[in-house]
Write a protein that binds this DNA or RNA. Structure first.
Lengths: 339, 339
DNA sequence: AGTTGGCACTCAGGGACGACAAGTGCCCGC
DNA sequence: GCGGGCACTTGTCGTCCCTGAGTGCCAACT
C-alpha cells in the first residue's frame, strides 16, 4: 500500500469535497481523478486514512469528508503558493491604485479581497505603534481645549481632544507645535514617548502644566492601545455557503463583529512573507471552530505594519485563498511605501 | 361593524405576528387580547381587512399575516413614539459618553443601536458639506507634495495628498495656511469654495500655480462627493430571524455592503425630528423589498448633519425601533454639539 | 504483499399515506 | 350587528417503505 497514493487520495478527497460540498465516495474518486487503481483499492486507502483521523464519514454508508487534521495535512502539502494570473494581478493593481487616502486604500483592499476569495475579508489598519510620525498638529478649539492630531507615515491620522487647566495662547501653542515636530518627526511611534518626555522643562512654569497635558495626550495617542482598527467586508458571502453551514454562520458573524476577537486573531500571526492558515479548532476562538482563517501581514520594506485575513468555512479553496491573501498583502505593502 | 374594532384587530394581528412570527388566527386573537367579541366576529373583521389588502393568508386555513399595506396602516396609527425607560436612557448616555473622537462616537452609536433594536444598524458619518470648517492644515511631505487636512466642526477629518508642479517652501506654505484659515474658519463647507476662490491672486505669479492646486484640492475635499461614509453593525442579528427569512438574508446583506445603496437609502429621508419608516416594497431598493427601514437624521442645534437607520424584516417591532432610533439620533446630535 | 471483483449490509433521503389540528367561511338564530 | 355551530380546507407530523449510494470484507488474482 503506497504512501504516496494515500496522500493523492486525501488530496483528491479535499479537492472534490471543496468543489462539490458533498461527501465523496470511492467510486466518484476514481472516475474524476485518474488514479490508476480500482475503487476497492481506494476504499482500503480510505479506511487507513480514516483510522489515522484524516477523513470521516458523516454517517455510515456515506462518502468521506476531510477532518480538520486532513485539511491540515493537505495544506502542509501545498508547498508553493500558486501565483495569480497576470490579468488577476493587473485587476488588483488597477483597483487599488485609484485610492486617494488611507481610508480608501484599506476599504478597497478589503473589498477586493472579499471579491477575489468570495469569503469574508478582514484588513487591519496600519498599526500605529509600528509606524512612524510624519507630522503632529495642534489645533486650538477653545483657549483651554486643544485637538492633538498625529499623522503617521502610513497616512493614518489619529486625533484626540485635550482640556487644559490653564488657557494657552496661539503663540505658545505654535512654539509647542514647532518643538514637538522637531523632536518627533520621522521617529518610530514607540520612540516618541522618550523623545518628548523632556519637553515641558523647556517652558516657563506658568505654561508647564498645559504643555504636560499636551505631551501626555500625545503619548497616549501614539501608545495607541485602543487605536487598532479593522474593517471587514464580504459578510454576504457567508450566506452563500450551501446547506448546513447556515447554522454555523451566526457565531461566525458575531465573532467578526467583535473587533477585539478579530484583532486577537490577526495578532496571533507572526510577521511572515507567507500566508498562515488556521483550520477549524486550531483557532482558539471557539465561535470560529467551524471556520478556517488565512492570514498574512503586510507592510512596506519588509517591516510589517498590519495584518489581513480571509475567513471562511473549513471547506474552502486554500490554494486560491492563500494566493489572493498574499497578493493583496503585497500590493497593500507597496501602497504604504508609496504614500 | 365598527371601524375602530377593525383597526384594533389589525393592531392585534401585527403585534402578535411580530411577537410570535406565526400566522395568527381568530381564536388566538380573542384569547390574547381582550377584544370583547367572539372569534366569529373577529373572523368577519379579518375577512374585511383581507378584502382591503391589509392582511393575507399564507395558505387557506392558516392564520393571517399583515401585508406591507397593513404594516403601513399600523405604523401610521402609532401617533406618538414611545419614550425609552429611564434606565435605557441612562445606559445610552453612559455608553456614548466615554468616546474620545468622532470615529469612536460613530462606532459606539452604531453598535448601541444594533444592540438596542437587535437589528442591523447603520450610521452615516456627519456629512461634510453639511458641517463647517474648524481648521485646515497643510503638511509638507516633499517639496512638491502636500497633504491637505480638513478638520470639520463635527470632529471629522478629511485628508488628501496633492502633487505640485513647482516646489513650495515652508514659508510660503505657512502663509497659504494662514490665509486659508483666515478665510474659511467657521464657514459652512458649502461656502468654502467661494471664499477661497480669490486666494491665488494674492500670491506672486511664480507661486500661483501651486496655490491654485492646493485651493483646488481643498475645494474638492469640501465638496466631498465621494466622501460620505457609513458604518454598519449587527449583521449577525439578521441570522437570528427564524424560519423563512434566512432565504432573504443574502440580498439584504449584499445591499448593506454596497455603501452606495446605503447612502441612497439614508439620503432619501428629509431631515426630520421624527423617525421615518419605509416598509417592504416602499423601498425602491429591490433587494430590500422584504425589509423595513427606520431612519432619522441627527445633528446639533436642529441642523441635520447625517442620518442613521435600522434595517430589519418587515415583521419588526416598529414602536420600539422608532424609539431607539430617535433616542440614539438625539444623543448623537448632542455629541456633535459637544465636540 | 498489494490489488481487484463481488457481495451482503447499512442508512439517509424521498415519496405515499393517514391522522390531526388549526383555522376559515358561512348560515342561522338572537 | 353579533355569536354559536358546523362543514370544509389544508399544512404538519409521524409512519412505512423503497431506492440508491456507499461501505467493509472476503476470496481470488498477479
Amino acid at each position: 500500500m503506497s504512501e504516496d497514493r494515500r496522500l493523492a487520495v486525501l488530496r483528491a478527497i479535499v479537492e472534490d469535497y471543496v468543489a462539490t460540498h458533498e461527501p465523496v465516495g470511492s467510486r466518484a474518486l476514481v472516475d474524476r481523478h485518474h488514479l490508476n487503481v480500482s475503487s476497492a483499492t481506494v476504499r482500503n486507502d480510505m479506511a487507513a486514512l480514516e483510522d489515522e483521523g484524516f477523513i470521516a464519514q458523516p454517517h455510515t454508508s456515506a462518502g468521506r469528508i476531510p477532518t480538520d487534521k486532513g485539511y491540515r495535512l493537505f495544506v502542509d502539502q501545498l508547498t508553493e503558493v500558486r501565483a495569480l494570473s497576470t490579468p488577476e494581478r493587473r485587476a488588483i493593481q488597477n483597483f487599488l491604485e485609484g485610492a486617494f487616502d488611507l481610508d480608501e486604500v484599506v476599504d478597497r483592499s478589503v473589498r477586493l479581497l472579499a471579491q477575489l476569495t468570495r469569503q469574508v475579508a478582514v484588513v487591519q489598519y496600519p498599526s500605529l505603534p509600528r509606524s512612524s510620525v510624519r507630522h503632529v498638529e495642534l489645533v486650538s478649539l477653545l483657549p483651554t481645549r486643544v485637538m492633538v492630531v498625529v499623522i503617521a507615515s502610513t497616512g493614518r491620522i489619529e486625533q484626540r481632544v485635550v482640556d487644559l487647566e490653564t488657557p494657552m495662547s496661539e503663540d505658545v501653542l505654535a512654539k509647542v507645535r514647532q518643538r514637538i515636530n522637531a523632536c518627533v518627526q520621522g521617529l518610530r511611534m514607540v520612540d516618541v514617548a522618550d523623545a518628548i518626555a523632556g519637553l515641558p522643562a523647556e517652558f516657563a512654569p506658568v505654561e508647564r502644566s498645559a504643555v504636560v497635558a499636551l505631551v501626555a495626550s500625545l503619548m497616549e495617542t501614539v501608545a495607541g492601545q485602543r487605536e487598532e482598527r479593522v474593517v471587514i467586508s464580504g459578510a454576504a458571502n457567508l450566506t452563500r455557503v450551501p446547506s448546513d453551514f447556515p447554522l454555523t454562520v451566526q457565531p461566525v458573524l458575531e465573532a467578526l463583529e467583535e473587533h477585539v476577537v478579530l484583532l486577537k486573531l490577526l495578532g496571533e500571526v507572526e510577521a511572515s512573507e507567507q500566508p498562515t492558515v488556521r483550520i477549524g479548532a486550531e483557532n482558539d476562538v471557539q465561535q470560529l471552530s467551524t471556520a478556517s482563517i488565512v492570514t498574512s501581514s503586510y507592510g512596506g520594506e519588509g517591516q510589517a505594519v498590519g495584518n489581513l485575513a480571509v475567513v471562511g468555512p473549513t471547506r474552502m479553496d486554500y490554494a486560491a485563498n492563500m494566493a489572493s491573501v498574499r497578493a493583496v498583502a503585497r500590493y497593500l505593502g507597496r501602497m504604504m511605501d508609496a504614500q
